[in-house]
């Protein structure tokens, strides 16, 4: 009798502990962060091979894949040594730039999965048609202006 009661209590304890163990296992997966993929495109929807992505507080710039213009990460390492893990629900701020294109800062709310963001950068218009050209002057000798006679 006593042993059967002991066994029943044991089973109950195991039953109660199982969800706890499962719950404990879940955060271990979350420490990896949710991957976020950013694809940088130009106005014609072509990948920008020279684009770089940076968190405003981060020191390093991350180059995109030069073939498809994509960059993917689940964690960023800050200059103070901390790690910024992407978790569902968090708002992520990133700065995208490329030579010859306007820099853009965008915010994105991380989802549990399928975090694929496409971003197109507008080109910087470098127009020199408005520059007025100077007229080339001929090389003329300037006549010397006559000076007044010094007072006697």
């Amino acid at each position: 009798m006593r042993s059967s009661m002991l066994l029943a209590v044991l089973v109950m304890l195991v039953g109660l502990l199982v969800p706890g163990v499962a719950a404990a296992a879940k955060p271990a997966k979350e420490t990896e962060g949710v991957p976020v993929r950013v694809i940088v495109l130009d106005a014609e929807r072509g990948p920008i091979s020279t684009a770089v992505i940076r968190h405003p507080l981060e020191a390093d710039r991350h180059r995109v894949n030069s073939v498809d213009g994509s960059w993917e990460a689940s964690v960023l390492y800050m200059p103070d040594g901390s790690e910024l893990r992407f978790t569902p629900g968090m708002t992520l701020e990133l700065e995208i730039s490329a030579p010859g294109f306007m820099t853009q800062v965008f915010q994105y709310q991380v989802r549990k999965r399928k975090n694929v963001v496409e971003l197109s950068l507008p080109k910087i218009e470098m127009d020199d048609t408005t520059i007025e050209e100077p007229v080339i002057s001929f090389g003329r000798d300037l006549p010397r202006e006559p000076t007044e006679a010094p007072p006697q």
Binding site: V52, M102, T103
Partner: peptide
């Protein structure tokens, strides 16, 4: 725009 693009 050029300054921000190059300096980041």
């Amino acid at each position: 725009a050029l300054c921000v693009s190059s300096s980041g």
